[in-house]
Structure formats: C-alpha cells, structure tokens
Write a protein that binds this DNA or RNA. Structure first.
Lengths: 203, 203, 203, 203
DNA sequence: AATGAATGAGGATTCATTCAT
DNA sequence: GATGAATGAATCCTCATTCAT
C-alpha cells in the first residue's frame, strides 16, 4: 500500500499518477512495466516514486484495490435488493450482466485482472491465489443457501460448483473480453455455460 | 524451432542442453529465466546458444513440443483402443487417470505448462491461445459424436462443454498439482466436476 | 557542533535525537549511517535535521564530545587523587581498570570510537589524527615527570613510549572489546603489555 | 578473485585495469571508490567489469594479493639468508629497512593497506582481521625461537610482544608514511621503539 | 521554528546480442 | 562450427539537500 506521503498528495496529482500507472500496466502488463515507465508517463521525479510507493507491486496492488472497490459498487445494488433471495441460477444472468457492465465501464481495471493472471512475479502469484480463494466464496454462499433450501441437489459438491462459476466469471470472462469478444457473444457464452451447470446441479 | 546445427548435435549434448533449459524454466519460469542461465547450466559457450536457437522462446517452444509428444504417447493407447467407442462421460475418469499419470511421470513438463500460463511475454501469450484452441478440439470431437448418437442432449452447446472440460484438464489440473495436491484430492475433484457436467449434459 | 536551535530544544527531545543517532552509528558505523536513518529513528522531520545540524559529521562529533566528557568523569577521580604521584607504571593497571570500566558502562560510546577508526570519510580522518595527538599527551605528561624523577631511564624516548601506551589504551583496547574479549582477557593482555614496557623503560 | 575471463585477458589490458583501480583506490580509498570510477579510468565498458570481477571487493582483494606478493619478494632475500639465524632484535632494523624500501618502491600498494584499515565495509573489516592474525605470526616465529635459545626472557609473553611488533611494522608505519614522514624520521622512530622492546624483552 | 514533499544525480547490476578469432 | 569477450542500454534504488508552507 502507498505511503502516507502519497495519500497526502493533492487529489489531482494522485489521479495523475494512478492514471499513468494504469495506462502502463494496461499496455505492457505487470512484469514488463518498469518503474521508469510509470515515472516517465506520470511526470514525477524518479525519487518521488519511492517516496510514494515501496515497489512496483505497491502501485499495482493499489490499483487492484481500486478496481475491487469499484466492482463492489456495481454489485452492491443487486446484492442488497430483494431479488437476491431468488435461487442463484435464476439470478445468475442478471449478475453476469452487472459484471459485464463493470468490465465495459472500466476496461482498464478489467485488464489489470488479465495481467494479474499472466504474471510470473512472485508477489503477484501470491495475490492471485488469495483473489481466487476470495472469489470462490461469493457464489459458494448462495449455493450453500440454495442447497439447504432444496434448490440444488444434495449430492452436489457445491465447492466444486462454486469454483466452476468463479472460473467463468473471473478468469474466462476477462480472457474473452481481452480477445475482443462482443457483449452478445459473451452473453450467449454465459447462457450456455449456465445452462449446463444449472441442469447439472438443480433438483 | 532449433536450427539444423542443433539437430545435428550428438544426442547427449542435445539432451544436456534440453535438461538444463528445462531445469531453469522449471525453477524460475519462462519470463525470469535468462539465456545466461541456460548457458551456464548447460555448460555450452555463450555464442553457441545463438547458433542453436533463435531466442529464448525457441528453446521453450522446443521443450513444449517435446512435452506434447510425450503426452501424446500416454493418450495414444487409450485413443486407439476400442474403449474409445464408449460414451465420453463413461470414459472420462479413465482419461483423467492417464493425464494424471503423465503429470506425475513428467513433472518438469507439467511445470512448463504452468509457467506458460503465467508468462506475460508476447510470444508465449500467443501460443497459449493456440494451445487452448487446440486443446478444446479433443473433447469436442467426442462430444460431437456423442451428441449425434443421442448420449448428449441436443440442446447443449458442445463447444462450451468442451471448453469447460479443457479448462479442467488443462489449466486447473496443472494449477492444483503446482499447489501440491495429492492424487486422491485430484481424483476426487475431477469426479465431482464430471458429476455435474455429466448430469448437466447427458440425456 | 549543533546549532543553537538544537541546544534550545527540550532536554528529552535532544536526548531522543542523540540516542537515535548513537543507535544508528553503533549499528552501521559512521560511513554507512545516513541522515535518513537518523531522521527515521529519532522521529524528527527531515527538515528539522538541517535546522539542528550542519551535516552527519556534526552529529557524530557531538556524540564524540559527549563520550569524551563522560570518559573524563571516570578519569577525574584518579587524576585528582594523591595516587597520581606514584610512578606511572605502578599506577597504570589502575588506570586501565578505569578505562575498562568506562568501556563497559558506556559500550555505545566505545563503539563510536571503533567506527571512528574505521571510517574513510575525510572529516573523520581529520579528527582521528587530532584525537591521536591529544591522546598521546596524557601519558606523555606522566612519563616526562617520571623521567625527570629518575624512574624512567634518561635515554628512553618518552614520546615513543607515550605513543605505545596510547595505542594500547586507545585503539587496541577498543578493538579487542569489539571482538568480544572478556574483562579477564583484557586485563591479562594489558598486564603482559605493561610488563614489557615497564622493564623496557624503567631504570 | 577475478574471473577466468580476466585472467585470460592480454597482459597489458590486465595491467591497465589494475593500474586504474589502484589509482582510484589510492585517491579515494576503498569505500568511496565506485565501480564507475574504475570503469571510467580503465576505459573498459561497464558490463566488462562484471565479466572480470564479482564486486568492488574482488578488485581490491586482487590488488592486495599483488601487494603481498611483491612484499614477499622483498622479504624473501633476508629470510633466506643466514643472517636470519641471528637474534631477532639484532636483525630487526635490517628488516625494518626492507619494509621501508618496499613502501617507498611501491607507495600505491602501501596506501592500499592504509585504506584497508580505514574502511567500514564488512568485507574489508573481515580481511583486516585475517591480515592481522597472519601478520602477527611472522615475528612470533622468531621470538619463539629466540625465547627457546634464551635470548628472550622466559617470563615474557611472546604473543603480546609479536603483536606489538606487528602493530609497529604494519599499521603505524603505514600511518606515518601516509602522513608524510621522511625515511629518517621513520628509522629514528623505529629505533626508539625497538630500543624499548628489546630492553623489555631480552635477557 | 517546524514540517515534509520534491528533486535528480549517481551508484550497482543485468542482459541480449554481436563479433572477431 | 565453436568460442567467449565486448558492449552499453536499461533497471532499480538511495541520498543529501532544498524549499515552500
């Protein structure tokens, strides 16, 4: 996480630096982006970088957190509505739409995720794991509930199912977006996917 | 692909170089392995490297092909037996066992795959895509057949299903092995996975 | 020497800064201690440092003076007692004991001396010379007296002798302490040393 | 120690590099000399330095060894002559003369020693200790012999005596030379020194 | 007087690739 | 074809000091 010095910076300077970093990470990925790159694009002096951040990862992680916060905003609405009481598979496409909207509204954040999955840097490998574990928890919660309520067959391993769902929403979605898939393609893909899983899992 | 000069090398020298490269790629991944590393471990002169290979990727790709060849050997048996006529989902765990055996017998090749998925190098990103496309074709072939024969519901999108299967066999399996999963864990995981997909897809 | 601003600081703030500097100089030596180090550990703002001191050397020198003052306290007693009238070599082990006690009571000051002798900084090299010259004067005073009184042979060059003594008390003692010598070892070492010098010098 | 690559270099190139490093170390001391300095003066490319040496210390140590070799040449003559059979204190001024001659003939090597004693670099501190231990052994050998033969009093601790001698020949001599002492001064100083030690130690 | 952000020169090190022998 | 030395751009990071508030 950035230093206090960075936090105390005027908002527009912070923005400028964040934007510069985001731009470079988007363009070259985590591993190939250098601190020099960020310094150059943001226009801050070499030494300042180290007064703001501990390392390249520090910046990357900050942006990742920003992305998560923004994502949360998108999901909050649906998670706090009453709809959420419906069986998960009835709601899943609606959730997918939200995810897709987020990705389209903030493609730079989306791409951050893409590069996260394609880094070989130790520090990144580490958080990828953490992200994955965290990401599985969300569908797991609803699936558990649905299983209790009898919507989902009792002999289904919901952890496995949650993982399959997360893989779709997390990794594959990002991958397809990166490869230029259109909204229609993505929605079609998701529907087919859900179709199989739903039938495989529901009572 | 390596130069003719490399191909003409005495077999044991070739082996030595391959082993050295494999060792380093396993240890540090594609991105972080340097040509110096390979040169040092293999004991060949710096200049020779460039007489044998065009680039680091050249070596990596060669090893990847080696790995594929070896993998093919494992699968040939099952693919050429009569069993293969059975419905895919009846056979899938047997196929999984073969895949697992291969991974256990050739962990260095397995790890190559792992690092392939964690590289941000342009050249690697490119072949990852090709690998994925290629990898999906295999299950697709059988699923198509099964759908025709009526084993699989006609309203299922088999491409999607093939992709889900490939994700399991390709990416996730490698990931779990990398994280130290035991054979038992992996088999259990695969079974649960197949359980859902089978029920989701079969008539 | 520190600025007046520093002198006017509340006593405990001064102490805090001194302790911080002493800690760092002890840990890393003069050359490798940075102003950043001192600023960080003492908790004072970066800019304040330059309001209190002119340079890193300024702080170091201040501490060196502190050390000298403290050392003087230890020696005052013996120098002001009547014992001091005895021939120097009869008293020398007693003096040594005082020196040793001081080193054990104030190891941080002792270490300061150690690092002074291991600096290559111009400013430090300069005061090392001054310290050495000053340090030789002390034994010289007594040896001169003793020579006049006939305790020491008249053909002895007492300057040389004084220097030999200073080397023992100043440099070597600190060195041995630094290498972890015990009190017993040090006393034994000093005794043997004195034995030779005494017989070499006395009538 | 330098790499084989360095050893294989044409003699005059090696000389050029050695001379450049020696010049810089003489001028600025070990701690303040940078690899850039050496690179600039020797005219070799930045990268070559690292093909020749592991570190700055590597170069320094190499020069130190060179100095030791040269010193040995000077001492060999006297150590292999029959004179050496004479009591050490009868010979000591002759030995001193040789040491002095060496220092005058190779002042750059002498200065290397000076800076060695004024470094705070960990690696250097380490070899200083080794040098000191090694250096004490030489006089010790002769003193032991003399004590056996009855030239030196049996109650003298010859280790201590050896140390005193080494301090004179090793550290102090270099120090005085560095401060600009003339040959006459040095010889006078040594004589007075020996005078005290001889009388203090001999039977 | 106190504060702490800004600055950029300068150090170490690595690496892919070329080239002369 | 084999060899291994040469090269210098590019990276990371630290630091003393200044300056505006």
């Amino acid at each position: 996480m950035p230093t206090k010095t960075f936090e105390n910076l005027p908002e527009d300077k912070k923005k400028r630096i964040k934007r510069a970093a985001l731009e470079k990470f988007n363009e070259k990925g985590y591993d190939d982006t250098t601190i020099s790159d960020i310094v150059k694009v943001s226009g801050i002096p070499r030494g300042s970088f180290y007064q703001y951040f501990e390392s390249k990862f520090d910046v990357f992680y900050m942006l990742l957190v920003d992305a998560q916060m923004k994502k949360l905003e998108y999901f909050t609405e649906i998670f706090e509505s009453e709809k959420i009481e419906a069986p998960f598979f009835d709601l899943v496409m609606e959730i997918f739409d939200v995810a897709l909207k987020y990705l389209r509204d903030y493609p730079e954040y989306s791409r951050l995720g893409y590069w996260m999955y394609h880094s070989s840097a130790f520090e990144v490998l580490e958080i990828v794991e953490r992200f994955d574990q965290e990401g599985v928890k969300n569908p797991l919660h609803f699936l558990k509930r649905d299983q209790k309520r009898g919507h989902i067959r009792s002999d289904i391993d919901i952890k496995t199912l949650a993982r399959m769902l997360f893989n779709l929403f997390g990794r594959e979605l990002i991958d397809m977006v990166e490869k230029g898939a259109s909204d229609e393609e993505l929605i079609r893909f998701a529907k087919k996917h859900m179709d199989i899983l739903k039938r495989g899992a529901e009572n």
